[in-house]
Design a protein around this nucleic acid. Structure first.
Lengths: 373, 373
DNA sequence: AGTACCTCTGAATCGTGGC
DNA sequence: GGCCACGATTCAGAGGTAC
């Protein structure tokens, strides 16, 4: 009797690169992967920040800026060429119905987005990550830069079969459609990886909650997610935890070491638990200027305290004025009483004829309108 | 007796185009305006929406999409050429310290932003308009598109003297820095302009509250704001109400008619209501020695920091001394803390028994006396 | 044990004016 | 145009320490 030679198994073995970190330049390494082999891509490319000198906080401490060599480009042209190259290589690797996420800030995201359109990617959404705790603007010269932007795109306009877990997202958002603006804290505390000396292991580590929403919304369990700028491996760790495969590409040994250890320590959730976490819905803070914008208080209106002893005028810019001094409702409330501080919301009222309406009641009205909308 | 011939007024007459709507193509008309003649620009260019067929709601009603001829471009190249042309013409008209706002969605904002950078504009912020009541996504294939993006940029990297009313914005936001994400309802209800048949007069009318914050944050009363895509004149109406001048450019007679009527019916707020909170930088400089001359601080008096850790002595010449070293309040403040620099006004206090009085408060007193005199 | 206070830090394109 | 003094400017969260 001759021995039966077993045929190769019906299920093909997983490719060697699956669930690994590939060391090297992301363009060269992506070109070595099979075409149309990954379901999704998450990319956090260099932002090309163009910083001037040192920036000091008001308390004279120095801001730890992102001044790494990998974020330096000679010109917009150089950055565009780099962007075009990696986006092109990424598109080859992406399955026809795959989607790509790219995160950036105003420094780079417009160039990235235009290049994506030029290469044939089809935009599905731009999603705003609103930071719950952004760094302040220390010099008071701009608005506090409190968000970053993600672009979510399919491989082409014709690709209609991409994954979007609409029902999961809606259920996770208290049965309302998930919006294009998400709020998450920045990555800090124990989640923030440290090197041997206790310094942050990577200057721009992203929060796992952000990656979790990305992965849960646009991939299925068992899918493969490629991250060409792997860094400390947030994409890989979250993918593993949520029962997805990953491929990471990273140039720097120090980052690879941290990422591998992190992923090794990550445990996959049981199948039941790979569901969408419910986002917290905090009571929205309503600034005084919103009452003016909503038409509930008019510029020029008179505010008085409950006993009618003090009076102030509302200005269009959201400050209120007494004499020739203008400041917030809180400051002016403190000022007229000659005290250190004052809750302007509790102190001031709008006079309508003989009737006084607390501005706090008007704020409640704004909250009702925002919730009802 | 001969009649006195009055000389021409010392104040030069306003240019003929101020506070008017110019009919025509915005590039051609901007090229006819004097260079460096406007303080700010607000632009709401065509979004280049690429809609397929008609979009139907679940109840089979048709969504009133933006399908106007002015929003159709043959290709990204055509849209880019158009964008480059109007941004170039706009930059010529903008004063060196002027700023520009451009609003768009993911369809066009990335191309607009990249072009702005290519032309030398310097980005200050991207600001997200979060819609309190956005249109739902009817197909359930994407996230609800719940925001639009505005880019705020100066004319060049070197222009540091642009207007940003930091104090107004902060006071209006309950004494917290204004963030880069703003929430406003979309324009609807009685604010939404209708044509003769009760249909909306313009498909993309922006809310006045949005324009008000733009104008209040980045212009001063009396400034001139150019809007090259004037539409129904939201920019003009809000500018007039807030005591700013405007110039509008619009091609379509129907929009011009609605806009002119709207602006004619708009009333300017009184001066107190529109004035801008004064930044400390702009207040008259008071040298420390003035406090001594005014008798508010005596030579020989002891200065301490808020926590009483450091102490210095006031000298008659307006310097203060620690040990055998004498210098300005700033230099000595820095010296005792061992830091590079220090705002002595915020650091030092006069001790009167157990009570500490900030020398900054004494400076305010001097300023009040000077203003009253 | 609980709380109050202090310190540190995060993708940052972060002066002005007089001499 | 360069130099230098003046002096303006921060929010939320985590973690540690003192009481």
């Amino acid at each position: 009797m001759s021995q039966v030679v077993l045929a190769s198994p019906a299920v093909p073995s997983a490719p060697a690169w699956l669930d690994t970190i590939i060391k090297g330049d992301c363009v060269a390494k992506m070109e070595m992967l099979p075409e149309k082999s990954v379901d999704a891509i998450f990319a956090d490319p260099p932002y090309n920040l163009q910083l001037g000198g040192d920036l000091m906080r008001p308390d004279h401490s120095k801001v730890d800026a992102v001044d790494d060599a990998w974020d330096q480009f000679e010109s917009f042209q150089a950055y565009d060429a780099f962007t075009r190259a990696w986006l092109l290589a990424a598109r080859r690797v992406l399955k026809p119905n795959g989607t790509i996420w790219v995160i950036g800030s105003y420094h780079n995201i417009f160039r990235v987005g235009a290049t994506m359109q030029d290469l044939g990617y089809w935009m599905l959404n731009d999603v705003v990550w609103r930071k719950a705790n952004p760094m302040p603007n220390f010099r008071g010269r701009r608005f506090q830069n409190a968000h970053e932007t993600m672009i979510w795109a399919s491989r082409s306009r014709e690709a209609k079969g991409y994954t979007f877990n609409y029902e999961s997202m809606k259920a996770a958002n208290d049965d309302l459609q998930m919006r294009s603006d998400w709020i998450f804290p920045i990555c800090s505390g124990s989640e923030r990886l440290k090197d041997g000396e206790g310094r942050k292991a990577h200057p721009t580590q992203k929060p796992e909650a952000l990656l979790a929403r990305v992965i849960l919304s646009s991939t299925k369990p068992g899918d493969t997610i490629l991250d060409p700028f792997f860094g400390t491996g947030t994409t890989g760790a979250v993918a593993k935890r949520l029962g997805r495969h990953f491929v990471g590409i990273e140039r720097e040994d120090a980052y690879i070491e941290v990422a591998q250890k992190r992923i090794d320590e990550t445990v996959q959730l049981d199948n039941l638990s790979i569901s969408v976490a419910t986002p917290k819905r905090a009571e929205p803070r309503v600034p005084f200027t919103t009452l003016i914008e909503a038409g509930l208080v008019s510029p020029g209106a008179e505010l008085v305290d409950a006993k009618g002893r003090y009076s102030a005028r509302v200005r269009a810019d959201g400050t209120i004025a007494v004499g020739n001094e203008a400041a917030s409702i809180h400051r002016i409330g403190a000022r007229v009483q000659g005290v250190e501080s004052c809750n302007g919301w509790a102190f001031w009222h709008v006079r309508e004829g003989a009737q006084l309406t607390a501005i706090d009641a008007l704020r409640d009205e704004v909250r009702r309108r925002m919730a009802g909308a």
